[in-house]
Computed example of a mutant assay.
Amino acid sequence: MNEAAEDQRQHRDYAARIDGKAFALALRADVAQGAAGFQADVGRQPGLAVVLVGDDPASQVYVKTKMRQAAEAGITSFPHLLPGSTSQTELLELIARLNSDDRVDGILVQLPLPAQIEEAAVIEAIDPAKDVDGFHPINVGRLSTGQSALVPCTPLGCLLLLQDRLGDLSGLKAVVVGRSNIVGKPMGQLLLNAHCTVTTVHSRSRDLAAECRSADILVVAVGRPEMIDASYIKPGATVLDVGINRIELADGASRLTGDVNFVAASSVAAAVTPVPGGIGPMTVACLLRNTLTAAKARSGR
């Protein structure tokens, strides 16, 4: 048996299932406690404006989940459900009103947007102090220079899970698979700020599997179902699967899966997030956390 196979055999059945759902539940409870304190001090609940343009069913479900969990955490929701024909000018006018509304501490515009609306223009129109998605160039710049910033929710959730499991991340080798503005790039920056040694790999990278096998921490966000198998994973690594893909089965049914083959990864890694139940719940919990953070900052608390 070669060394790699022996390492894999020794780690078989060792991987812990990282329960993002349970962690998110505890995080939402912490937010609720903070929101109650904020209301006692300020006289109102933190406020989150959620803007949805169009009638995409998946987006509608996601927005309803956000608003329900916001209410449970003591955060007031201001939903704005707009028709798919909404113009860019109309959307920007709404954002301007929300920017000036003192009841609103966070503004979330659900992506993707219809083709007639320029995504970058909408993101840049949001007051950076209310940018609870963390996508505004000012917040991106603050993150990249190590300053206080509102951070994209999914990478923030990943970081919190890693710190909960591993403690101090200093000196660990982290590999991020994917370079999107929403996950890959901010994830790499957060890990760098946490003193990891960070490599970002993507479709143009050479010997992707070898790069991934060097990682103590592997974060995968590429949108390709079960792309990462055991051959990509260093024995004992911690693997976070950000992907969520719906695949069709032979009987006509479908199932959700991540970018990581969970069963294969579990034979090698020390810990893996499942899909569903891993990173997904953390994204909404961190949105609520960002809303409370923005509310406190805007009120000087």
Rank of each mutant, 00 (worst) to 15 (best):
I95L: 07
D127M: 10
A121K: 13
L108M: 10
L92T: 01
A120K: 14
N99D: 04
V122W: 06
D127I: 10
E124N: 15
N99H: 00
E93Y: 04
D102K: 15
D102C: 11
L94C: 03
L91G: 02
D105K: 06
L98M: 09
R103A: 03
A120H: 11
D127P: 11
D102H: 14
K130F: 12
G106E: 04
I117Y: 04
E119F: 07
E93L: 09
L111T: 09
S100N: 14
R103D: 01
D105N: 14
E119W: 08
L92A: 02
L113W: 02
I95V: 13
L98G: 07
E90K: 13
V109M: 04
D101S: 03
D127K: 15
L113Q: 08
K130A: 15
L94N: 05
E119C: 12
L92Q: 01
I95E: 02
A125D: 12
L108N: 03
E90S: 14
P114F: 05
L92F: 06
R97Y: 03
V109L: 00
N99Y: 00
L113R: 01
I126E: 10
L113K: 06
A129R: 15
P114H: 05
N99E: 00
R103Y: 02
A121F: 03
L91I: 00
L91K: 00
E93P: 01
I107V: 13
P128N: 13
D102L: 13
L98E: 06
E90L: 11
L98T: 07
A120S: 14
P112I: 09
K130E: 13
P114A: 09
S100Q: 14
I123S: 02
A129K: 15
L108H: 06
A120D: 14
A96C: 08
K130Y: 13
A96F: 04
L91P: 04
V122C: 04
Q110D: 06
V122M: 03
A125F: 12
D105G: 04
R97F: 09
L111Y: 08
V104I: 13
I123R: 03
L91R: 05
A115M: 08
A121P: 07
L91A: 05
I123D: 03
Q116L: 09
S100F: 08
A121G: 07
G106L: 05
Q110A: 08
A115C: 10
R103H: 04
L108Q: 04
L111H: 09
Q116H: 13
P114E: 08
I107A: 01
A96L: 07
S100E: 12
I126Q: 03
I123Y: 02
Q110E: 05
A120I: 09
D131A: 14
D102A: 15
A96V: 08
L94P: 00
V104A: 03
L113D: 06
I107M: 07
A96S: 10
I126P: 03
I95W: 00
I117F: 08
E93W: 01
L92H: 08
A120N: 11
A96K: 11
E90D: 15
L92R: 01
L113A: 06
L113C: 09
A121N: 14
K130N: 15
V104C: 05
D101L: 03
A115D: 11
A125R: 15
V132I: 15
I107Y: 00
E93F: 03
L98D: 05
D127Y: 10
V122S: 01
V109A: 04
N99L: 04
E124F: 07
K130P: 13
